[in-house]
């Protein structure tokens, strides 16, 4: 079965930057700055972000289990354990990922109507 298609690709920071003609000194300085920026971007994306799902009164327990299996590829027992944690404790951390993947999961979970958010681990 195909998964829900509506999520657009997530834009990476630094994409689509302007390229200009520079002097050698400017180019060297610019390269250093670029390297620093790239490294900061990589560092930011390498950090772990938690994906949380919050309890809500509308989504049914079986639907939440179904969505966890579908989006997060959990087996049924794991999906049910997280669903019960959401139900009883108000929230569950369902994934710990780099930023891009965490954003992707939040989008996918929200596409099914779940209250999903992300925060730094």
């Amino acid at each position: 079965m195909k998964s829900i298609p509506p999520c657009r690709p997530i834009r990476r920071r630094g994409e689509g930057r302007f390229i200009a003609v520079l002097s050698r000194a400017q180019a060297e300085e610019s390269t250093e700055t670029d390297v620093q920026v790239e490294s900061k971007v990589e560092e930011a994306f390498a950090r772990v972000w938690n994906v949380l799902v919050w309890n809500d009164p509308i989504n049914t327990m079986s639907y939440v289990t179904f969505v966890f299996q579908k989006v997060l590829k959990m087996d049924k027992a794991t999906a049910e354990r997280h669903m019960l944690e959401v139900h009883h404790k108000g929230k569950s951390i369902v994934a710990g990922e780099n930023r891009e993947k965490a954003e992707f999961f939040v989008h996918q979970l929200q596409a099914f109507g779940l209250q999903a958010t992300m925060e730094r681990a």
Binding site: P5, R8, V106, R120
Partner: peptide, 29 residues
């Protein structure tokens, strides 16, 4: 939609992306 419960400033742009995506679901659906 809400991307982060903590209103992390690092996620401001991503929160806008999420809003655009959620609005696009309306037309897809």
């Amino acid at each position: 939609g809400t991307l982060s419960a903590s209103a992390d400033p690092e996620l401001a742009e991503a929160a806008e992306d999420l809003k655009e995506t959620r609005l696009a679901w309306r037309s897809d659906r």
